[in-house]
Every structure is written in structure tokens, then in C-alpha cells.
Design a protein around this nucleic acid. Structure first.
Lengths: 220, 220
DNA sequence: TATTATTTTTGACATGCATCAAAGCTATAA
DNA sequence: TTATAGCTTTGATGCATGTCAAAAATAATA
């Protein structure tokens, strides 16, 4: 959240985000069909969002970490359109959307922020579409790992080490691959000395090699 | 746009959308990297939006028709993040985003509308992710055709006949398929008597059969 | 009209990933 | 410790879609 607010304005923002909610690993923050009331700012923990078709196929649409906002899918129809599941014990700020709308009429900086957050999600989904539509398995996994460490690094964590919060199956669902294919791609990267993997722990040994796989052209 | 505005408010809305722009077939409304200034409401015509990776692969991220809003990808970074290309001669309303933000502070109904439009785009992209991640070629094409006629029907056009504004290759790019695969799926549907195809013209003979292909479970 | 370019269709073949299966590993509980 | 369940790895095989190629249909241009 940007700064530049007066004390009074800060107070109103604080009031809006005062309510907290804890979600244990495996529990739902919201699910498809729930009435939409609030956006959620993740304080601690890690989530996945997923949609499922009527015949039971599931698509993970994103992984969200601390500092990210979740729930914008619900605005259009006043009902949530996906499930949000905690991949580890988590805590969120509950931000009633009517409060957000009300307050952002007074605070242009907040208004702008809300717009940017939604636009960022649209742009993110655009690049997932590129990934799903055009990339091969190893490119997808490289893109996924690079994106994860980049976001973790932006939160002050390592840019070379990470602990995956999700299973191979969930990664596969996000990347449009089967879990076996994800596992094989991990093994391949490991054999090639690009990463070290031990279950959920991953260390990126050769980030440039990963980037080259993700985007061959830049390194012709 | 919803109603319920006063005469004064309607005037402000009118002022905001007064500027028009014509785009000929094949021309760009905006392209990736352009400074973001305005959203565009399509008055007439048909667009595609696409992103391209540095090594030249292209992904069509959507097809937009009259009455739809385009350009929200630009908000997050103040620069557009995709290309918008007219698939037929088109005309749009230019809506400066600063005006939209300013006015939506006064008009809650407008504010709500802007939020819904962005949320709708997020939800749409979620279902494209499902399509790209989980569905097979014929399911994708069935979903695509059903979505198109549904949107055309909502505009007062036929729910069984349509003229495609895009090539097989563009359909394929949107659906994560090669043009040959799209062509084969069209032929298959045609052989099975589900649709009639003649180049860009398509008539849906058996909508239920299409829905069944799109979503087998509902019809077990 | 003839000519050229673009788009679409169809066939033959190749391949990347899915599927099926089994074993190994890890974590949790008894 | 042993037992159980869940997750991951690896191998063998199959299939849906990609690739390559050529012809047909259509549209654009001279």
C-alpha cells in the first residue's frame, strides 16, 4: 500500500483492514458460489486458487503469497468464482469491498491502487495464457520457478532457494501438465545441474540456464 | 452502462465518452509498450488482443466485440501490455482513464461498473486457463463457438449462425492449438452434423451436441 | 478476366506428453 | 519401532496433437 496519507486517512484505512481471519492448512478461505463480501490481503501463509468444471476437472489458477490480494473474481457477480485454499497455516486481513469502494472515493491513491491490483491480475493471467498456449513442459516449469523466486526475493527472501508449498500435482494443474511430467522436468533440471531438488526444497544453481530455457531467444 | 443517473451526471458521462476513433481492419488500436491513457469501448467492429514473447511466439488472449471494454491491461504499469488489432473496420469510444477515475469518485454506479468490468475479465481469463489446461481440441472449439454465439445472441444476433471474424490460425492461437487442428475439429463437427461450416460462416445445427462436447458430465 | 497471395483443408508421419504401473521416499500416527 | 497414507520418482507404452507437405478454395490485385 502506498504512503502519502494523512493521519486521519491512515486511521480509516486501518479501520478497514482491522478484521483478521486465520485459515489452517487445507482449509478454504472462500469457495466458488460463496457470496462475495470482501477482498483479502494475505498477511502470512500461502494460497492456491482453483476453478473446477462440472465434470470434476480442476485448474489451479494461481498461487498467492503474503502481501498479495485475493478475491477479485467475486466482484462481477457478487459471488466467488473460484476456491481459495490455504497451502499452509495462514492469516488474512478481511477488507469489506463496500468499505474499499467507499473509501476509494475519498482517497484517489487507494482508488488507483485497487485498479492497479486488478489490472496486475489481468496481466498475470495473460502471461499464464501464453505459458499454457505456447510453451513446452520444461519452459513452463522454468517460468514457474523463476516467477516464484522473483516474488519471494521481492519479499526479502533468497533469490536462489525456496521451499515449495504445493505438490507436484498442484504445480502440474497450474502449468497444464500431469504430475509425472512435472516430476520429470524437475529431474531433468537436476541432472543438468541447473537446480538442486530435494522434495519441496529447491535451490536454483544456474539461474541463467533457467532463464534461457524460459526464453531461448534472449540468449541466442 | 447502467442507468439511474441524473441529467447532470449523464452529461458528464457523455463528455467523457465523446471522443471517437476509427480503426481500419488490420490496424492496431494500441500496442504493447504504448503509454496507457484510455480505456476503449468498442462501438462497432471486432478486435483481438494478443501478447508475444521475445522469441516471437504469439498468444491471442481474447476476442472483443461491440459493447465490450478493452485496454485494462495498461493500468498496472501505465503502459499497455498487449496488442489490440481490429479484425474488421471498427470504431471505439476513447475514455481517458483519469476521467473515469475522477468521475467514478462521484458516481458510485460508475465505480461499481468499472470494478465489475475488470473482475469479469479476470473471471473470463480463469475459464480460458481451464480450457487451455484441461480440455482437448474439440472441447476447446466447442467452448469457443458456444461462447461466441452466446455473446452475439446477447447483442440481438442469431444464436445459431455466425460469421467468424478471425482466421483458423487466430482461433488456434487463442485455444492453444495449431490451425490444422482447428480445421480438423471444424471438419469433424461438420461430418457429425453438429455444425455447418463454409469458410468463415458457421451455423450451429445441434447446440446440445456442442454443449455435450464442451461439458460431457452434464449429459451423462 | 488472369494472376497472385492468403486461407483452409486433408493426408502422412513424428513427437511430446499422458497414461498406466510399480517402487521409493517422507511424514504422521500407532 | 512398525504401519499407513500421501507424495514423488521412474519406466514402458499409447495417443492426441504437432509438423511437414501439397492441394483446394477463396480473396485480393493487376
Amino acid at each position: 500500500m502506498p504512503t502519502g496519507f494523512s493521519a486521519d486517512e491512515m486511521q480509516k484505512l486501518d479501520d478497514m483492514v482491522e478484521k483478521r481471519r486465520r485459515i489452517k492448512q487445507g482449509e478454504l478461505l472462500f469457495s466458488s458460489g460463496d457470496e462475495f463480501v470482501s477482498l483479502y490481503a494475505i498477511r502470512v501463509g500461502f494460497f492456491k486458487t482453483c476453478v473446477s468444471s462440472e465434470d470434476g476437472r480442476e485448474q489451479v489458477t494461481g498461487f498467492q503469497m503474503a502481501g498479495e490480494i485475493i478475491g477479485m473474481d467475486g466482484i462481477v457477480s457478487d459471488h466467488h468464482n473460484c476456491n481459495a485454499i490455504a497451502l499452509e497455516d495462514a492469516e488474512v486481513c478481511v477488507m469489506p469491498f463496500s468499505d474499499i469502494e467507499h473509501l476509494s472515493r475519498e482517497l484517489p491513491a487507494l482508488q488507483r491502487n485497487v485498479h492497479k491490483i486488478m489490472s496486475r491480475e489481468i496481466v498475470r493471467e495473460n502471461s499464464v495464457m501464453m505459458l499454457l498456449g505456447n510453451m513446452r513442459a520444461e519452459e513452463r516449469l522454468a517460468a514457474f520457478l523463476l516467477n516464484l523466486v522473483q516474488r519471494l526475493h521481492a519479499r526479502g527472501l533468497s533469490q536462489s532457494e525456496l521451499v515449495l508449498r504445493m505438490t507436484r500435482e498442484e504445480i502440474g494443474s497450474y502449468l497444464g501438465l500431469k504430475l509425472e511430467t512435472v516430476s520429470r522436468a524437475f529431474s531433468k533440471f537436476s541432472e543438468d545441474g541447473i537446480i538442486e531438488v530435494k522434495q519441496r526444497y529447491v535451490r536454483i544453481v544456474e539461474p541463467d540456464a533457467l532463464k534461457k530455457i524460459f526464453n531461448p531467444q534472449t540468449y541466442y
